[in-house]
Amino acid sequence: MRESRYGIHDISLVKSQKENEYARMNMPFELGIDYGLRKFGGEKYKGKKFLILGGKKYDHLPAISDINGMDIMCHDNETLTLIQTLRKWFSSVLNIKDQPPPSKLSSEYFEFQTALFEKMTQKHGNEILDKEVVANLTNTEFISEINQACQ
């Protein structure tokens, strides 16, 4: 967090989905750390910019009400809406122009996911295992797969 001038925090999973299930609090916790860094980390971090993502409007308030009044962008738990939101933020905050349309980005993402699943199927030969492997890739492994796909 100290190395980046930007932060993207998705707090859409602050609500458990099933009875007796615990909600994931890693992302709100990381948002708090990042916010604290911006507020108390000195001059270097005062200009740090955040994109805070939520699922449905106001769903986060019972779990993390202290961010009431901050600009939370909701993606309605839809991949295309998430991509549209990210694209707008990249354009306005990061000044990235001439981005592909959201539908193309979405299509490329799903093509990558399909290719990744097929790669795992060839490697392991078991579709059930492969769904588990793909679902549990660490960020480092996922980024490595992205880098390999881009070569």
Results as ranks from 00 to 15, higher is better:
L51H: 11
L51E: 07
L51M: 13
L51T: 06
I52C: 06
I52P: 07
L53Y: 08
L53I: 15
L53T: 02
G54D: 14
G55W: 07
G55E: 09
K56T: 11
K56H: 13
K56R: 14
Y58W: 13
H60F: 15
H60G: 03
L61V: 12
P62F: 11
P62R: 07
A63Y: 15
I64L: 14
S65F: 15
D66G: 08
I67K: 08
I67P: 06
N68H: 11
N68S: 12
N68Q: 10
G69C: 03
M70V: 07
M70P: 03
D71Y: 07
M73K: 14
M73D: 10
H75F: 04
D76G: 01
D76A: 06
E78V: 02
T79W: 10
T81F: 09
L82R: 03
L82D: 00
L82G: 02
L82H: 00
I83A: 12
I83Q: 10
Q84N: 10
Q84P: 02
Q84H: 04
T85M: 01
L86M: 13
L86T: 01
R87Y: 04
R87L: 11
K88M: 09
K88R: 12
K88N: 09
W89F: 08
F90D: 00
F90L: 10
V93N: 05
L94S: 04
L94V: 06
N95R: 14
P100I: 03
P101D: 00
P101K: 01
